[in-house]
Nucleic acid binder design. Structure first.
Lengths: 181, 181, 181, 181
DNA sequence: CTCTAATCGAGACGGTACGTCGCGTCTTACG
DNA sequence: CGTAAGACGCGACGTACCGTCTCGATTAGAG
C-alpha cells in the first residue's frame, strides 16, 4: 500500500529531527543537518515535507493528539487531578521525545500547535463554559502554563516524580480553571 | 556625553523594530527591513547590535524592568489582585508596544527574557518559598501563563476592560501561587 | 563525466570575465558584474572559484600553457627570432582575449602568473644556463619586457604587422639573452 | 611657507605607507592601517590625499624624478653601461624604500607611473629616435624589464653586488636599445 | 520473474539574508 | 575654534541555507 521506502525515509527523518531538536536550538537546525543525520539525500527531504517546521509538526501531531485524547476525558469529568496525573505519566514515559519538543528551541512552535488543535477540539465539542471565560483564553493559559512547567520539569532530570509534578500542575494550572467561578 | 548621532540611530532602530514586530511575524523581519524602515544604512545596524534579537531585547529590557518593578511589591505583599491590576493597566496604557512584544512572533523570545530576568531577581532577593515550590518553576508558570493571556487579550482589540482582565489573570495565574500550599 | 551544468557555468564565467577585463580596469570589475554578465547566480560563482583573480588565472592558464609550449622549442633551439614570430602570430590570431589579459588592469596578475609558470617549467627542465645568469632573473626580464611590449602593441590597434613586432621583440627582449655572454 | 604641521603629517604618512608596502601586499594595506601606523587621525588622511594610491604616487614621484634625472644624461650620451651603474648604485643605497616600491604589491602602479613620467619627458625632449622605434615602445620595454629585474635583485637579499647587477641590466635591457638598428 | 514506474542519492543552481570590511563624507565632542 | 575621533551611508565581499532542478542508479510491487 504505502511504499516501504517512503515509510523508512519518514521514520529516519522523524528520528533525526527529534535527536537534533533535543540537542540544540531548533532554529539553528538546518534541513541539511536533518538529512545528513537521517542518512538520506538532501532533495529527498522536500519530496516528503515542505520544510523542517512541517516535519516537526508532523512528528508532534501524533503525540499531541494522543495526549489531548488522554487528558480530555478526565478534564471534562472535572477530574483535573486525574488529567494532570495522566499527562505527567504520559510525558514521563516518553521523556526523550517530550524533552525534544518542549525543552528545546521548538517549544514555541509546539505550544502554538497545541493551542490551535486544542481550540479546534473545544470548538468542535461546543462545550459549555461554566467559568464564563472564553475557551480560547483558558486554553492559551492552560497550554502555556503546562508546557512551560513540563519544560522545566524535563530540564531538571529525573529528580521529581511524576506524581508530585502532577500535583503541582493541577494546583497551579488546571484546578484554578474549575474552581471558583 | 553620548554622541547625539548614536542616540538618534538607536531611537530610529527601536521605533522600526517595534513597528515591524507589530505588523508581522518577527522571524520574517530582516535586518534590512529594519534599517530601511529606520532610514539608516544596513551596515550601521551592526555597529549597534549584533543582530535583530539583541535589538529587540534591548528595546524590551526597559519595559520588562519597569513592569517587574511595578508588580513585585504588590506580589510580595501577597496582594496578587493588586499586582494583576497594576500589570493590566500598565499594559493597557502601552498597547501598541506590548502588542508588538507579546502578540507577534517575538513572544517566545520575550517570555524567555522575562523568565531569565525574573529568576535573576528572585535569586537576588532570596525570597522565602511559602509554597514549598522552586522559585524557577513558579516563575516559568507565572510568566508563561501571563504572557499567553496578555497576548490573547491584546489580540482581541479593546473588547475587555483592564479590570476584568486583571481579575482573570489573578484567578488563573497568580492567586493559585499563593493560595493552598 | 564532468557535469554538463558545470562546464556551461564555467564557460559563461570565462566569457564574461574576458569581456569585462577587455572593456575596463580589471580591479574595478566586481564578482557581481561577472555573474550578471554570465547570467548565473552570484553565490554560484564561489562554488567554482574563490575569487575573480582565480577565475582570471584559470582562463589565462590554458593560454599561457599553450603559448609557452609554442615558444619554448624555438627558444631552446636558440631560434629566438622564430620564437618571437610564433609568439606574435599567436597573439595576433587572438587579439581580443590577449588584449583583455595584457592591456587591461589584469596585466600585473597575468605577468606574475606567467613568471611563476615559466620558472616552474625551467626548473623542471633543468636547462643549462649558457649565459651564466639565474634562470629566474632571465625569465623575469623576458616575461616583463614581452608582456609590456605586447600590451603596447595591442593598444595601437592593427597598425603594426606581426612580423615587424616580432623583430622588435626579438631584438629588444629575446636575442640579448642568447647573444654575448 | 609650507605649514610645518602639514609636512610632519605627510612625512609620517610617507614613512607609514612605505613600511606597510614593504612588509605586505600593497593592495591589502588599508587607509586605516596607514593612519594607525602614522599616528594620525583617519579623516586627516583625506585632507592630504584622495586615497592611498595617490599617497604612494606622491612618495614615489620624488624618487622616480631623481632616478630619471640620474640616468638620462648617461643614457642620452649613449653610455648605457654608465646609466645602468648609476641606477644600480642609486637603488643599492636605498634598498628599503626601493624594495617597498618594486618588490611589493605596489610594483604595477610604480611601473605604470614610471612609464607615464618617462614618456612625458621623452616627449618633452623630442629626442631623435636613432633606432626607428616609437619612444613609448622603448620606454615600455626598458621600464618593465628594469623594474622586473630590480625587483628580482632586491628580493635576493644582498647576494649580488651593484656592479654585477648593473652589467646584467645593461646587457639585457639597455644596450639592446642602442645597439643594432 | 520480469518490467516499469516510483523513489532514491547526489549535488548544481538561482536566490535571499547574513555579517564584515573598507571607503570617503560629515558631524561632534573636546582640548 | 579648530581638529582628532569616529559615526555614518554605501557597496562589495564571501558564507549559509533555502527550495528547485536534473541526473542516473536502485528497487519495489504489479502483471
Amino acid at each position: 500500500m504505502v511504499d516501504r521506502r517512503i515509510r523508512k525515509t519518514r521514520d529516519a527523518l522523524a528520528e533525526a529531527v527529534l535527536a537534533l531538536a533535543a540537542e540544540r536550538d531548533f532554529a539553528s537546525v538546518t534541513v541539511a543537518d536533518i538529512t545528513r543525520r537521517a542518512g538520506i539525500g538532501y532533495a529527498t527531504f522536500f519530496r516528503h515535507y515542505p520544510g523542517k517546521d512541517e516535519l516537526l509538526a508532523d512528528v508532534a501531531d501524533l503525540l499531541i493528539d494522543e495526549l489531548l485524547g488522554l487528558m480530555l476525558p478526565a478534564f471534562l469529568a472535572d477530574d483535573t487531578a486525574g488529567a494532570s496525573l495522566a499527562l505527567c505519566r504520559f510525558v514521563d514515559a516518553r521523556r526523550p521525545i517530550c524533552r525534544a519538543l518542549l525543552a528545546g528551541g521548538a517549544e514555541g512552535r509546539i505550544r502554538g500547535e497545541m493551542i490551535r488543535r486544542a481550540s479546534a477540539r473545544a470548538l468542535a465539542l461546543d462545550l459549555p463554559q461554566p467559568t464564563g471565560l472564553p475557551a480560547t483564553l483558558i486554553i492559551a493559559h492552560a497550554v502555556s502554563s503546562i508546557t512551560a512547567m513540563l519544560g522545566w520539569w524535563l530540564e531538571q532530570g529525573e529528580t521529581m516524580p511524576a506524581e508530585v509534578m502532577a500535583a503541582v500542575l493541577d494546583r497551579l494550572a488546571l484546578a484554578p480553571i474549575r474552581s471558583g467561578g
